[in-house]
């Protein structure tokens, strides 16, 4: 069954040398979650998967690493069929994949440094001194050197995401999977995480798949995107071509995202004005202060 607006046709065959090839993937839980989804990800490329909550974006990531098994369809990673691998085969390919979970999924009983070290001990034969250096380098990359001895419970949401990111990149994966990397963060921290993803991609050349419902994040980190709706990939292509799509849901989604972005910007501007008024009450005009209050009331 093909969605009327599905314009990507994988029957033409995948492009050669794809790092990840997803072919006609389908999975059903209580209801169909993914239906005939196909996608290629190439080395060094970042692809965003967009869509509303509950449209199977996170399920797609779990299928790629073999945490879930599809009802039909195939997934290939470096030409190995993930969907046909056993326990040991999956362990083998997972050492080349980094996964940033929505809540970072740091191990509660360990410090940030120990969280990173556990991954290195498992995946490398490096002596302790070299592991320490690698941990320090990974934490420096995400600007979290000072948190090496902190427990996850002592970190803020943004710091947890950065620590999770450091833990994923410390083993130098070939593919990074991001599950809602900016969800639940304030706009400034969300923006810094998105910039960090771009920096990592540029510095390390890692291919990435970023699952998000936040359009600004998608535009920051990737050039190509796939949009899921009701299990179908209703769009796959360059981000700049999103506007050209005739799909009604996509238009609604883009409009809502734009409004959301404008709302964020207005709140930020109102806060900045309120802050400026607090710091310099004489300079702040009565009209501006009243305007800030009105803005915040209307917007919140």
């Amino acid at each position: 069954m093909i969605h009327p607006f599905q314009h990507h046709n994988h029957d033409q065959g995948p492009k050669p040398n794809a790092l990840v090839r997803i072919e006609h993937l389908a999975i059903t839980f209580d209801k169909p979650v993914l239906r005939d989804v196909s996608l290629d990800i190439h080395k060094g490329e970042t692809v965003a998967v967009l869509g509303k909550s509950g449209t199977g974006k996170s399920v797609l990531l779990k299928l790629i690493v073999g945490l879930l098994t599809p009802d039909s369809g195939k997934i290939f990673f470096k030409d190995k069929e993930v969907t046909a691998l056993g326990e040991f085969g999956l362990m083998d390919i997972r050492s080349d994949i980094g996964f940033l979970f929505q809540g970072a999924a740091l191990f509660d009983s360990m410090t940030v440094g120990q969280n990173l070290d556990l991954f290195l001990v498992k995946h490398t034969d490096l002596p302790p001194k070299e592991r320490e250096q690698k941990i320090a380098a990974a934490l420096e990359m995400v600007q979290l050197q000072e948190a090496i001895d902190k427990m996850p419970s002592e970190l803020s949401g943004g710091m947890k995401k950065r620590a999770g990111l450091a833990r994923s990149i410390v083993i130098e994966p070939e593919l990074m999977l991001y599950d809602e990397p900016t969800t639940g963060l304030d706009p400034v921290t969300a923006s810094s995480i998105a910039e960090l993803i771009v920096t990592l991609q540029q510095q390390l050349g890692i291919a990435s798949l970023v699952v998000t419902h936040d359009l600004p994040t998608a535009f920051t980190v990737s050039d190509r995107a796939m949009v899921l709706n009701e299990g179908y990939a209703i769009f796959e292509g360059e981000l700049k071509d999103l506007e050209k799509s005739e799909d009604a849901f996509l238009h609604e989604y883009l409009a809502a995202s734009r409004l959301d972005r404008e709302r964020h910007d207005r709140i930020l501007r109102a806060r900045e004005r309120a802050l400026a008024a607090t710091q310099n009450p004489k300079a702040a005009t009565k009209g501006t202060a009243r305007g800030s209050e009105t803005d915040v009331k209307v917007l919140t």
Partner: peptide, 18 residues
């Protein structure tokens, strides 16, 4: 149970930590 809820067990699986 809380490790399962916060995806820590999934994170171990993904990192091939058994």
């Amino acid at each position: 149970g809380s490790m399962r809820a916060s995806e820590q067990i999934d994170a171990m699986d993904v990192a091939a930590l058994d």
